[in-house]
Amino acid sequence: MSAGVEQVSPVWAVVAAIAVLAAAFAGAAVDGALQARPGARRAGMLAPVAEGARLLRQRRRTLVAADTLLWRVGVAGLPVVAVLMAAVLPFGRWVISDLPVGLVWFNAMDVMLWALVWMAGWGPNAAYPLVGGYRFLALALAYELPLMFALTAPAVAAGSLRMADIVAGQDGLWYVVWMPVAFLVFCASVLAFSLHRPFDAPLARDLAGGVLAEASGVDRLLLLAGRHALLAVGSGFAVALFLGGGSGPLLPAWVWFLAKTLLLQSVLLVVRRHLPSVRPQALMAAAWAVALPATLLQVAGVAVVVVARG
């Protein structure tokens, strides 16, 4: 069934890690271009270079009586989780680890962020990051269940939790066509777990940067890079789950996969710039009373179609 996607030698994992980093960098470059004033877009593309140099040069900070261990684990954990998530992501025809429960693996990694972001907020022993960390948990309570059910929709259609099967199941018809609700919920969740607007309350300006408020130097760099890496990998999963993975005419699968991922990532970055932040409390009722039932109905619809098809 998993024709088309094959597991590659573990040595390629190193390349995969670099690829995730590169995608994160690309996202940051697009973001920089979007932020630049009109007429300086090209210079804006170099924003991640300048930012990287700036943060590498900047001194690290620690705070009086900070919980340094949890803080550092949280900070470094973001990019680590993003890369581990990518382990089961079919990159065109190749995947590092073709787990039979790849989808659940993705879910487990995104749940890791609950702990990591909270730790990054708790660690500094300062009010703003602390509030930011707790805000993330509130957001997570809102987005996690709709995300989980949005994940099951493609799994039901493919009859498998293996990413390769899900990609193969979209041969001919992409899942986004008949699972639009699940796709939208998934994209929103990607923005949420990668701490991007409208779900950036944990890092918001009203908290002086929230979880970021006390981090400087390489710690800040890791947090920001992790954030972009999560968005990149999340977009990759959206492509694999809903947009046919690497399928497309003429060009090799990996080119298609990359192109779709970068496009979706850019779209999400554009969307995020034009939306205001959502307070966790404003999101909670909407997530539980609207998004959750809508996603459930989506899964029900998919299940009925699958059963009817035999």
């Binding site: 787990l99 429960v101 659940v104 693996w105 879910n107 487990a108 749940v111 890791m112 996690e144």
Partner: peptide
Amino acid sequence: VVTILMMVM
């Protein structure tokens, strides 16, 4: 995997 998922959560 589900043990990891649930327990961390």
